[in-house]
Design a protein around this nucleic acid. Structure first.
Length: 467
RNA sequence: GACCCCUUCGUCUAGUGGCCUAGGACAUCGCCCUUUCACGGCGAAAACACGGGUUCGAGUCCCGUAGGGGUCACCA
């Protein structure tokens, strides 16, 4: 079978993490089977569809390298086609006009609740003579759902699920203004796009039963469904804004690497044995939808951070420099010069070992570029006491003699110094770190001094001694 | 409320009836490395929701119970 999948987000808000994972699984499944992965923007609700949201979806997928194999389909462009299909259903006797008012529907719903059924519409106009239709009411078009039997799906993820047709009421195909509803549009588009496998969040599971009725009525092949569980927040509840339900652009702003985010999301709800770190290409080879878990999984920022720091460590220094350079320049209000790029590149191996995300990477690199005198944090000030300053003063003459100025010689100089002074290496290394970086945390202080250069190193020490 | 789905360490998960004395990863704790913080290495603690079956044997199959979730619009 030639597999075709699609990701079909509605552009009503932003592209969130759950949507991304749905897109990812659709891509993984299609590519694994050598098929196509398509994107369809479900923008039929003109009131809510926003151009910004469409851009957010496109930008987000692009950033994550999850672009669809063909140009996105905009559902709103197919409206007339959807309407024609609805009309066909009407003339085939498979749909009918319903003239119920909102008040009537509300009452039916109440009745249904009281009598304990999920069949909300009672079928009032299903068998009425169209001649009884009120003149002044624009009708909706409803589908004649079979009243007996059961609808079965053999879900790729959830397994066999059956629902009695009695539970299904007559869904609206066309609104009173003639526009098609989601249930109809999605079915027609899936058919027209040749979609063979519908992989989506399991909040759509109940929709599958209604949509199957439409596929059958239209005598179209019914796609195979795979309903993947939703992602929950860290506390197990619905994903909230406080807990991860942010646009994917926020993850970008927070300094997550796209590959890391994709790796984390692939591993959330799907597994390949005990593998934790793997590329999209590997996952495509391995992907088997039967290994997608049935239960919802919680987002875990600790693990995301851990994977992100792994990817940062593995990333090429030049790439990381490119990603943070602008921000460093902006934060310190520096004027652009090649020196910044060079120094960042030199410092990157030490810096990237300690960063969970790009924000930390940026912040931890700033001291390399600050113009003296530095500002010092509490711990640094505590270290830079009288004794420490005395030692630094003594150290300067040793440092002056160093040539060439490189980490190894700086290290041996400090070691010799501590030996001569009969102190621990830390008793001179920590004051030096505080003097050069303004903090007590940094990469190897020999490396730091080396990258700063002799002149800058001496200048920063002098700043301390003069205060 | 009705219908449907789900349930292995705190979290993500491995597990497809004997390989399970339940494995890995994140987080936590301890030790080692070390000029700091990290990284890295080693180790510890930590789970089959509960109750019944089926079977020689059950985390794995079946049935209940409890808990969690989803859906129930002229939204998608």
């Amino acid at each position: 079978m030639n597999v075709v999948t699609r990701f079909a987000p509605s552009p009503t808000g932003f592209l969130h993490i759950g949507g991304v994972r749905t897109a990812l699984f659709n891509l993984l499944f299609a590519r694994h089977h050598g098929g196509k992965y398509l994107l369809r923007i479900e923008d039929t609700d003109k009131k809510r569809a926003v151009k910004d949201a469409i851009d957010a979806i496109l930008d987000g997928l692009n950033w994550l390298n999850l672009n669809s194999d063909e140009k996105p389909v905009f559902q709103s462009n197919n409206r007339e086609r959807h309407q024609r299909v609805a009309t066909e259903l009407l003339s085939a006797g498979l749909a009918y006009h319903c003239y119920c008012s909102q008040e009537e529907l509300l009452k039916m719903r109440e009745n249904a609740r009281v009598s304990g059924t999920s069949r909300l519409y009672d079928g009032k106009w299903r068998n009425k003579d169209p001649a009884e239709a009120p003149r002044d009411v624009a009708p909706v078009l409803r589908f004649k759902t079979p009243t007996n039997g059961t609808t079965k799906i053999n879900d790729l993820v959830q397994g066999p699920v059956n629902v009695s047709n009695e539970q299904l009421d007559d869904m609206i195909l066309l609104r009173a203004d003639g526009t098609p509803t989601y249930l109809l549009s999605a079915v027609v588009d899936d058919h027209d796009m040749g979609v063979t496998h519908i992989i989506r969040g399991d909040d759509h599971l109940t929709n599958a039963f209604r949509q199957i009725q439409l596929f059958k009525a239209l005598k179209w092949d019914t796609p195979i469904f795979g309903h993947i569980p939703l992602i929950h927040g860290p506390e197990g509840g619905k994903l909230s804004k406080r807990h991860g339900a942010l646009g994917i652009d926020h993850y970008k702003k927070q300094g997550y690497l796209p590959d890391a985010l994709v790796n984390y999301l692939m591993r959330l709800g799907w597994s390949h044995g005990n593998d934790e770190i793997f590329t999209l290409a590997q996952a495509i080879k391995w992907f088997d939808i039967s290994n997608v878990g049935k239960g919802p999984s919680r987002i875990d920022f600790n693990k995301l951070d851990s994977i992100n720091s792994h990817y940062i460590k593995e990333a090429d220094d030049e790439i990381l420099v490119g990603l943070i350079k602008e921000a460093v320049i902006e934060k310190l209000n520096l004027s652009e010069c090649s020196n910044i790029e060079q120094r960042l590149t030199d410092a990157m191996p030490g810096l990237k070992l300690r960063a969970k995300n790009l924000m930390e990477l940026i912040d931890s690199s700033l001291f390399y570029f600050k113009k003296g005198p530095l500002s010092f944090d509490k711990k640094a000030l505590l270290i830079l006491d009288k004794v420490a300053k005395e030692r630094l003063k003594k150290l300067t003459s040793s440092l002056e003699k160093i040539y060439p100025w490189n980490p190894e010689i700086i290290q041996s100089t400090l070691k010799d110094f501590s030996k001569n002074e009969e102190i621990n290496l830390g008793e001179i290394a920590q004051p030096l770190r505080a003097a050069l970086t303004g903090t007590t945390i940094s990469p190897s202080i020999f490396e730091v001094a080396s990258i700063l250069g002799k002149e800058e190193t001496m200048a920063r020490i002098k700043d301390i001694l003069n205060n």
